[in-house]
Design a protein around this nucleic acid. Sequence first.
DNA 1: CAGTGGTCTAGACCACGAC
DNA 2: TCGTGGTCTAGACCACTGT
Lengths: 256, 256
Amino acid sequence: MPTSENGSPPPVYREIAEELREQIRSGRYADGDRLPGENVIMERHGVARATARQALSVLINEGLAVAVRGSGVYVRLFRPIRRHGARRLSRELWGNGRAIWQTDTDGEDRGYDVDRLRVEEGTARDHVARVLGLTEGEGVLLRSRRYLVDGRPVQTALSHLPLALVGDEPRFRDGDTGPGGIYARLAERGLAPARFTEEIRGRMPTPEETEALGLTPGTPVLEVARTALTADHRPVEFNEITMDGSAYVLQYDFEA
Amino acid sequence: MPTSENGSPPPVYREIAEELREQIRSGRYADGDRLPGENVIMERHGVARATARQALSVLINEGLAVAVRGSGVYVRLFRPIRRHGARRLSRELWGNGRAIWQTDTDGEDRGYDVDRLRVEEGTARDHVARVLGLTEGEGVLLRSRRYLVDGRPVQTALSHLPLALVGDEPRFRDGDTGPGGIYARLAERGLAPARFTEEIRGRMPTPEETEALGLTPGTPVLEVARTALTADHRPVEFNEITMDGSAYVLQYDFEA
DNA sequence: CAGTGGTCTAGACCACGAC
DNA sequence: TCGTGGTCTAGACCACTGT
């Protein structure tokens, strides 16, 4: 039973953090506003530097604030991109603007870029091989890339395609895979994806992901593992997608 | 440009953290194993206590380790529950009187419990009112609860039902809403949910959520906002679900 | 340049768990 | 009781931002 019914008073740094958190919630500090810094907190609460830092680190690790070296600590904003799972139903339901989380113009007028594109051959790891129905050590074509919106990295993706399916067709290895992308190329070979399965998980980023996505402390990632299958249930692609949790809202629509 | 190409050497605490992280990855320390404590790190690396603590806090905030007071720091495990998006809500399931929660895992034998059940009337917040198509200040029935698996809290849910739809029918206010639950009761009133929309977001927990779910530092939550609509697009329920990110994998299946 | 956050030291006392 | 992690002090030097 961690942190349950605690008779003892909360530590000082938590009380300071709670005070600031409350002021953020109440609107006393708004998005992008500068919060009291270490020195101000030390003076106002009569605590040592480390204690003031610890209080601020609570808010930072909650994703409520970001520290900017040499400048200050600021309230953080949440203006996510909306990613639709199944597009089919979403239009009619959400064209009326009744989403829970407001998104920045729902994808209009943004600068989209792709970055760090890499294509190579390799062997699938255990769990990928299982998902794709491959035998141990069978080859896959790996396509990795990073996506940016308005210059900000928001997502990385690593796509796995069985070599047995793509052969040496150059289109699969090009940076530009042509109109319709990979899925259209698969369709031309009689391997059109008909169904998708997405598994989603939330976790803290690895240092590599922190670098690749430019994440600040207190930002989790959303990991989406997507499998594409043909109409006869043959897996043709497995895609590992890692998204900046502060940049995305995922949406899925489905029938009862 | 945050933390980009950095010529300067990484701080000591990061190097210590990286060393431990690598040992965890390589299997040198497995799930549940005890990691070197503050004192060991101080001695081995010749650093002050605060520096050793900072190194450990990196791993803890990454969700790789948990600290247990008076005992030690341990490698953390990830054994999630699978939550199916579409399948679990199928008409067939709640038509048979099976509760949604029971289908939440892949049929394993686990101990399921519901806790902190609360039913009350209230008014919907702005964004909830918008989603449910309510006028300002219109009443809703609020049903909140906490779910536990094997005694461990893993999820909280807050369901909103427009009072105009549920009337004073007692079944909606009972702890046990009868076979098929809320959705079956709505169906009996000609308000059978036909479609669902789920919006998913990953973020760090609030202190309240940390308490309710017994979360350790470095654990994000998955927040699912679900709207249930009738066949003619009338919203009948809005449910705010918060899940322990270390306890769940969400799965959605859909067609191209 | 002054002010900010980032790192680090060398202590101290406490609450808690395991033995 | 002893070792553990949790909190806190009172300094220090550094890197960086802003003017």
